[in-house]
Design a protein around this nucleic acid. Sequence first.
DNA 1: GCCACTTACTGTCAGACTGACAAAAAGCTA
DNA 2: TAGCTTTTTGTCAGTCTGACAGTAAGTGGC
Lengths: 233, 233
Amino acid sequence: MPIDDWEPPAVLLTVDLVILTLREAGLRVLLIERGVPPHQGALALPGGFLGHLGEDIEAAARRELAEEAGLGDRSLHLEQLGVYGEPGRDPRGRVVSVAYLAVAPRLPDPVAGTDASGAGWHTAESVLSGEVTLAFDHRRIVADGVERARAKLEHSSLATAFCAETFTISELQEVYEAVWGTRLDPRNFYRKVQRTEGFIVADGPSRRTENGRPARLFRAGPRTVLHPPMVRP
Amino acid sequence: MPIDDWEPPAVLLTVDLVILTLREAGLRVLLIERGVPPHQGALALPGGFLGHLGEDIEAAARRELAEEAGLGDRSLHLEQLGVYGEPGRDPRGRVVSVAYLAVAPRLPDPVAGTDASGAGWHTAESVLSGEVTLAFDHRRIVADGVERARAKLEHSSLATAFCAETFTISELQEVYEAVWGTRLDPRNFYRKVQRTEGFIVADGPSRRTENGRPARLFRAGPRTVLHPPMVRP
DNA sequence: GCCACTTACTGTCAGACTGACAAAAAGCTA
DNA sequence: TAGCTTTTTGTCAGTCTGACAGTAAGTGGC
């Protein structure tokens, strides 16, 4: 149907990052303050344009992860979330964004300051409820990212990506409780996690202490798919 | 870091469609024969460039669904699968493709002829095994689409999208068996499906006959999320 | 009309998994 | 040593699953 000299339209490609972590027992997402128009000064997801025409999209995501979030050399979970390309979502023209979901273990404070309303780790709740306003369609992207994380906690070992290399079972439980926003019975959780072969493996006879009985340390096991799954109440 | 007059690179955007259906009790995917270079004459997924700069991506997918597959007015399941934008995947330049997964009920023969090696419905097995060769990275896209369908059969009511408006429980079972590539016990399947409230609802006292005892007819119920899920053996 | 055959549907039963709860173990503080 | 906290091990009844038997309701052959 197109006439012989028809040329397909070209679009601008960006990557946006939903970076999740746990802080103070709550699910947090990293937001930056935009330094340039459009939406200058507004909060938004870290991200940016493809660097050059030959750059791989996931490579661009990792580059932004380093540049904007200071999470360069770390090995963290990174997966594609989806494409957001509705016409009109960006006043600069036809901008299509590939969103990625990243999960980071508990970290020291991020690049920028920690003003409650500035760049930094904001609770997922404040973003989803609209208490914090984001630029573009980024609130929807965060919502999709959080829902993806919630779903993957059920069927995959994603929860271990929120933890340090070694962790206790209660720390793992805190991940589930924070991401799902529910409380779980420690005894049933303990049983379930222990009986799911390959989910977590004991890390030597070491222990750790703080207040009560010392807890055994574990690390992520080889299994990535949980069968049967953890069930969200 | 970018210099002041830096301009972000522009890419070409395409949509590709993984259209799945059931034919002769097997899972099939629709392939077309490319009429223009690159890969002229090779088999590929239906799809094409964004029509114009203001076209919505999902709208483009629906347009290709109508133009290339003749599935225009039908209401069928359509969801975004992911982005495939590796540099070098398309010799025409930097082409980024948004893949969609579509699920269609059993249909009459598609647009083109039915040569075993030509355009038309090919078994998913022949594509995944490499017996049939596809252009670009389309084999990987098909693999991801099939895996997505397999996973969603567990937790959602996607299976009903493979069926006509009304269907019997054995027809629904055939969907699961074809997509998963396994055999299921009809009695346990019957029980499981019946007890999952809202998955399927009886469609009047009507029946249908062919060989054995007539089967009750059902239609898709209001529930889209299955809880507890169907389990893949 | 009776019989064989096919498919649809209803049960049964033992084992696995889950949710709710009790109790013991192992550290700390006072 | 007593009291507190948190971890770990059990218990028990209800539910769900997988394997399998048996009944119901059509077809076609004779």
